[in-house]
Structures are given as structure tokens and as C-alpha cells.
Simulated scan of single mutants.
Amino acid sequence: MKKLLALAVVAGGVLFVIKRNKDAKAEADLWREATAPTERPLAAVSTNGSAPAKTAEAGTNN
């Protein structure tokens, strides 16, 4: 009975480690995808996260 319990504990530990590694890989892939540079920036969003200045307003606010 003790051997069976020990085997169940070891199997549970192995499954836990496998699931944890899968979750870590999925999170790393998601992070890599979210932070990957795009081919061209979006229209109203700059690449550094700040709002870009509009060219028409930039010249009239002097």
C-alpha cells in the first residue's frame, strides 16, 4: 500500500512539473508575441507608447 501511495505521489509530482513547464512556455510565447516589433506602426499609436504629436497642431502652438 505504501508503494502505491509513493508511486501516486511521484506521478502527481511529474504531472505537476510538466503542466507548470507548459504554462511557462505558453506565457513566454504570449509575451514574445505581445512585445514583438510590428512591420509598421499603427496609425494613432507611436512605437514607444506615447501619443504622437499631430503635425498641424505642432506648428500652430508656438
Rank of each mutant, 00 (worst) to 15 (best):
E33C: 03
A11F: 04
A53K: 14
T47W: 04
R20N: 12
E57W: 07
S46E: 03
R20T: 14
A24W: 05
S46L: 03
A11C: 08
A51Q: 10
T47A: 11
N61L: 15
N21C: 12
A26D: 10
K54A: 10
T35K: 06
D29L: 09
D23T: 06
A8F: 04
A28Q: 12
R20V: 06
G59D: 14
G59M: 13
F16E: 07
D23S: 11
K54F: 08
A36W: 00
A36R: 10
T60E: 13
A26G: 02
G12I: 02
T35A: 02
G12R: 00
A56R: 08
K25V: 04
E39G: 10
A43L: 13
N21Y: 13
I18D: 03
F16W: 15
T55P: 10
F16H: 09
A53N: 11
T35L: 04
P52V: 01
P52G: 03
T60P: 02
R20F: 14
K25R: 14
A44D: 15
T60H: 05
A43C: 06
L15N: 08
A26M: 03
D29I: 04
R40N: 08
L15G: 05
G49K: 04
A28V: 02
N21K: 15
K19I: 07
A34E: 15
A28W: 01
L30P: 00
I18P: 00
N62R: 14
R40E: 15
A11K: 01
V14T: 10
K54V: 09
S50H: 09
N62C: 08
A24R: 13
T35W: 05
R20A: 13
N61Y: 14
A28H: 05
E27I: 06
L42G: 03
N62S: 14
T47M: 07
N48E: 10
K25A: 10
T35I: 01
A58K: 13
L15Y: 07
N61I: 15
T38C: 04
T55D: 14
L15T: 12
A24M: 11
A26P: 00
K22S: 09
L42Y: 06
R20S: 11
T55W: 11
A51F: 12
L42V: 05
S50I: 05
P37N: 02
G49C: 01
G49S: 01
P41L: 00
T60Q: 11
E33L: 05
R40D: 04
P41G: 01
K19P: 02
V17S: 06
L30G: 04
A28P: 00
L42K: 11
A36F: 03
A56M: 10
A11L: 08
A36S: 13
R40W: 10
G13S: 04
A36C: 02
A8W: 02
D29V: 03
T38V: 14
G49L: 02
N61R: 15
T38S: 12
D29T: 09
A56K: 12
A58N: 07
A8R: 09
D23C: 06
V14M: 03
A44P: 04
V45I: 12
A51K: 15
A34G: 00
K25W: 03
R40M: 10
L15S: 13
K25E: 12
E39Q: 04
W31A: 13
A8G: 05
A51C: 10
K54T: 09
I18T: 09
T47R: 12
D23P: 00
W31R: 15
G13R: 03
V17E: 06
L30N: 09
N21S: 14
A58P: 01
S46K: 03
A26T: 07
K54I: 07
